[in-house]
Nucleic acid binder design. Sequence first.
DNA 1: TTGTACGCGTTATCAC
DNA 2: GTGATAACGCGTACAA
Lengths: 335, 335
Amino acid sequence: MVATIKDVARLAGVSLGTVSKVINGDLSVSEKRKEQVQSAIAALGYSPNSIAQNLRIANSRTISVLLANITNSFQMALAKGIEEVAVAHNYNLAIGATNELMEKELDSLEMFERNRSDGIIICSTGKTKDKICALINKDIPVVMVDRFVPDIPCDYVGDDFPRAIEIALQHLQELGHHHIGVIHGDLNTYHGAWRHELVLRKMRRLKIKYDERLHKTGAYSHQQGEKAFRELMSLAVPPTAILAVNNVLCAGAIKAANSCGVSIPQQVSLILINENNFFWDIISPGITMVTQSPLKIGRHAASIIFERLQSKDAPTFTNTLFEPGLIIRESTRRI
Amino acid sequence: MVATIKDVARLAGVSLGTVSKVINGDLSVSEKRKEQVQSAIAALGYSPNSIAQNLRIANSRTISVLLANITNSFQMALAKGIEEVAVAHNYNLAIGATNELMEKELDSLEMFERNRSDGIIICSTGKTKDKICALINKDIPVVMVDRFVPDIPCDYVGDDFPRAIEIALQHLQELGHHHIGVIHGDLNTYHGAWRHELVLRKMRRLKIKYDERLHKTGAYSHQQGEKAFRELMSLAVPPTAILAVNNVLCAGAIKAANSCGVSIPQQVSLILINENNFFWDIISPGITMVTQSPLKIGRHAASIIFERLQSKDAPTFTNTLFEPGLIIRESTRRI
DNA sequence: TTGTACGCGTTATCAC
DNA sequence: GTGATAACGCGTACAA
């Protein structure tokens, strides 16, 4: 059996309250007793039970994060940012993943709620709006990250995706491309549909003519990226440039290009929207990309949680967008 | 204020125990009361407080994972494997990262202990042996993964790294290489030193002559990979082949090769020990690699935790090693 | 079948 | 400075 505070008190020959005090660094305890208690703690290998502490304190010292896909480097960077500030506050980090499944998202959120997470950071499928709002109504600090979902009264932190799309399209346009293929994300997720719509709108604004056949949608998988690339390049009039909205889709496209013998950028230009991690530095040809900032997003989202935790007055929700950058490499060229 | 079981009981006009029963699916409760309770729960938006449940049950339904580096894809594959089986058991997943710092490892482990984690999975720096043993002595199921640390009485799951080294060296040897450079890991971590030693031993067995200058060690960073590669290639007699023991070191080496204009495999062959994820499929030249199985490791480690949780009889510790594979790509060639 | 009372390990408020 | 004691939210014998 693992030692409790009672065991310590008994062994040290003091009262329960005294032990509690030395554990929590209360000054009002004599040097002598403090030593007694400390040696008893050492002797028993006593470790305070945070479950009991948390029950008493009504505070789990845990912030929970719901990711879409644990193994995606973008998402990992998000998690890393959150982890950094969580440990800085001596908080626990709980992690769940949706894999784009609404049911898993619901399960995780309910788990987080039952655990009385002090804060929840969500990269959502967009299909659990009711649940998320319910959490917010219970005064649990919630921050949505990366994927914007409308009509949820909470903080949002992400990249300026509209701007990112614009930068990507403008770059291609400046290089003379007007027949542009797009490998979109999953229309079954809210943000996938939203970004899809966004691309169409930006294209209209930039007066790039719309051709349905140039727009491929599907799951966020490299298989889908491969498939989309193949289909685009086997069109009667293939695009002269392709925009991939996410890293794994782009990776799939590159693989397809390699295996089909399509050379980038000679036959087709390729541009990607994603975090510029080290990985993309060693790929050849270098892929031109519009950069996102998952690490910053994670850090900022976590910071917001802790701010909310400190000041309990009515929050005014923030909407933080990080400015995308453009890194020009070899995969895009003038037509 | 968030609703408690008392509120539910009051609103439903039943006793506390009755509510508890319907929450936990106890059959001995009349249909009528059950409905009363359920509608009260719905009306209040009641969610059971797992902190209190856990205190009562003496069980946190949490398994905690200590990783080395959250953003490393190998490590996240590990985490993914663990997550899969954790959610299958309806368990929470807590995550911490050491960043190779013994202090952070200690902090995390203590946090896990205080949280009364049901099980702990550790990818250790190797410097907290005492703490880990203390946890084990308290009957907390502990599984060490990936990095082997001797003299800790617990289960271990990892790749057969000695075999992986052997496969890598033999492959190079068969291609006629005998002047082989090695980019080792961090000698300041236990397993880094262990693997370093392992390489030397295997080289001896394969009668590859030892030359100190061909062995570079340092942190697990791409910067270090770059530096090591550069140093190796500027030797008076540079190696004809290089073995990188980890993904980021290898990535650094590739970057250095690109920026120095060293062509792989024409000037030097390169082989890597790592998980074969999609990433390595789109790199050119394709990197020959000896494969590891982090996903399987994670799954198996988590399974062991749950086995230990079920049968409380004295465990006989297991040592599971996954067999490495060899994927020959373009980065290694006959000399 | 239903309700009462106790205890899980802590912290905090008291008197002393 | 110190030690009882109530309370945190819940599960569960036990009695009713």
